[in-house]
Deep mutational scan, measured.
Amino acid sequence: MGFKLLSKLLVYLTASIMAIASPLAFSVDSSGEYPTVSEIPVGEVRLYQIADGVWSHIATQSFDGAVYPSNGLIVRDGDELLLIDTAWGAKNTAALLAEIEKQIGLPVTRAVSTHFHDDRVGGVDVLRAAGVATYASPSTRRLAEVEGNEIPTHSLEGLSSSGDAVRFGPVELFYPGAAHSTDNLIVYVPSASVLYGGCAIYELSRTSAGNVADADLAEWPTSIERIQQHYPEAQFVIPGHGLPGGLDLLKHTTNVVKAHTNRSVVE
């Protein structure tokens, strides 16, 4: 069995187990497998329904001669939608809004960016022009300005110390501490036991640490421990890039980060 097929099978099995364990909360999309990078042309966006009122959005972007996937989250909030992270750029984010209108038909009224990198804030200006209120932590807003990236308009308070959590509509926002970046936030959907790890969490097929220019490698494993301790009931975990899975993604990420750190020390 090929690795790609095995990865998709694991996603399907995880979703099936969740649907059985929580039949009222989960209505997993039966329309197909989780979209992969090879299936999404740059400039297009796919939506994948995880649970009743919960979707991931998947886009792709060219970077350094390669094409990478990027995940975000959409959560229903009454007759409105909360968006977590842009679709990595203005063109993708405009396509995301169009796809949401086509498939869901509810307005996106608020959006949260989970850290300051372009795959999370690139497209904020498109959201703002569409009347979406954009939010991020003060740290993310400051770092985005320093980096020359787009800056969300509103500040999220109460997320300055490791372990801080605040309720934001249908989700809980959690600051686990520094990891992929010093400002990275985690998003949890309690009604569906869905954990969105953003770039602080890796997919299972990833074996290298990737972009760690703004990471705190020493603190990252401790931050992941905080996530595990705060959300032990999480059933569906979405990484910032690639295929979702279960809580095993947290341990896998820790292993990859520690291996990278150990290699760096040896070198």
Rank of each mutant, 00 (worst) to 15 (best):
K4N: 14
L5F: 15
L10P: 15
S16I: 11
A21V: 14
F26R: 14
V28C: 07
V28I: 14
D29P: 10
S30R: 13
P35G: 07
V37P: 15
E44Y: 09
V45K: 02
L47C: 03
Y48Q: 12
D52I: 10
D52F: 08
W55G: 02
T60P: 05
S62I: 08
F63K: 07
D64M: 12
A66G: 15
P69A: 15
P69E: 15
P69D: 15
N71H: 03
G72Y: 03
R76M: 10
R76P: 03
D77P: 02
G78D: 14
L83A: 02
I84M: 06
I84Y: 00
A87T: 03
A94R: 14
L96T: 00
L97F: 02
L97V: 01
E99C: 06
K102Y: 09
I104C: 00
G105A: 12
T109Q: 09
A111I: 01
V112P: 04
V112Y: 01
T114F: 01
H115L: 02
H117D: 00
D118P: 09
D119H: 02
R120V: 02
G123V: 03
V124P: 03
L127E: 00
L127N: 00
R128Y: 10
A129S: 12
V132G: 01
V132N: 00
A133M: 13
A136Y: 01
R142Y: 11
A144N: 03
E145F: 14
E145H: 15
V146K: 14
V146I: 14
E147V: 15
E150Q: 08
P152E: 00
S155C: 06
E157H: 11
S160V: 12
S161D: 13
G163H: 06
R167W: 12
R167E: 13
F168R: 02
L173I: 14
F174I: 04
P176F: 01
P176E: 01
A178P: 14
A178D: 06
H180Q: 05
H180K: 01
T182S: 13
D183C: 01
D183W: 02
N184P: 01
L185P: 04
L185W: 01
I186E: 01
Y188R: 01
V189R: 01
V189G: 01
S191A: 13
S193D: 14
S193P: 04
V194H: 02
V194D: 01
L195R: 01
C199A: 02
S205L: 09
R206Q: 15
T207M: 13
A209T: 11
A209R: 10
G210T: 04
V212H: 10
A213L: 12
D214S: 12
D214W: 06
P221Q: 09
T222I: 11
I227W: 04
Q229D: 11
E233F: 12
I238T: 05
L247M: 13
L247Y: 15
D248H: 08
L249Q: 02
L249C: 01
L250H: 04
K251P: 14
N255L: 10
V256W: 04
N262H: 10
S264N: 15
V266H: 11
E267F: 08
